[in-house]
């Protein structure tokens, strides 16, 4: 049971760091991309709005495994010869971004129109109203769902193991082939993921508490 960890410490650590790396990079990329698409989705320009809606509907209704499959097989065909880590970042981020976009949009939708009207009647400029009234409230409402989406993204990153990325789940194949009991191998890997996801949950809970306002 413990020898799995003792004997494979380097391998597991390597995988753990790989998952962390994937988490950080994909987290940043999908937040940026998600915000961009959300901006499209709520923009006053119809074509951008159509694009945003189409993107969200397409990616939310496509299995992540299929996106990985299409990226890993399709990009070489487009003569984009990137590393598998980059493929994984593209697949995971484009997928997560669709959900993040929706979280941001529903955050914006929670701000009643009266808030903007009140701001205007107080003589605030449009920029002031947006930056001081609307976006802070929308952001506060969007933080919890975005947090859980990022946690879901960590869990989804395990799929990258099937596409040649060095990460936590991917280390299991080597250990099992080397004769370690799959029960303990996978339990320790699960523990590795739990460390990441549960500490993210805790951080999120703390953040929510900080953002909470007494109404």
């Amino acid at each position: 049971m413990l020898e799995v960890i003792q004997d494979n410490w380097d391998l597991l650590r390597h995988g753990f760091v790989g998952t962390l790396k994937l988490t950080v990079v994909c987290g940043i990329v999908s937040l940026l991309l998600g915000t961009l698409i959300a901006a499209c989705r709520v923009s006053p320009v119809p074509p951008l709005r159509w694009f945003g809606t189409a993107y969200v509907n397409l990616f939310r209704n496509t299995p992540l495994t299929l996106i990985f499959f299409a990226v890993a097989l399709g990009f070489p065909k487009l003569r984009f010869n990137l590393s598998y880590f980059e493929f994984a970042v593209i697949a995971l981020s484009t997928y997560t971004a669709a959900f993040i976009c929706e979280a941001i949009r529903s955050g914006i939708n929670t701000v009643p129109i009266g808030q903007a009207e009140a701001a205007r009647s107080l003589g605030m400029s449009f920029t002031q109203s947006l930056s001081q009234i609307v976006l802070p409230q929308a952001g506060r409402a969007a933080v919890p769902p975005i947090g859980s989406l990022l946690i879901a993204m960590v869990r989804n990153s395990a799929i990258a193991s099937a596409f040649n990325v060095t990460e936590l789940m991917g280390t299991s194949a080597e250990m099992v082939e080397n004769g370690y009991k799959s029960l303990w191998v996978l339990l320790w890997i699960a523990v590795g993921y739990l460390i990441i996801t549960l500490s993210m949950s805790a951080a999120l809970a703390a953040l929510e508490k900080k953002l909470a306002v007494v109404r």
């Binding site: 299991s172 194949a173 099992v176 082939e177 004769g179 799959s182």
Partner: peptide, 10 residues
């Protein structure tokens, strides 16, 4: 029967 490579020995 197709067997995943991690499951062959198993």
């Amino acid at each position: 029967k197709a067997i995943a490579s991690t499951n062959r020995e198993n």
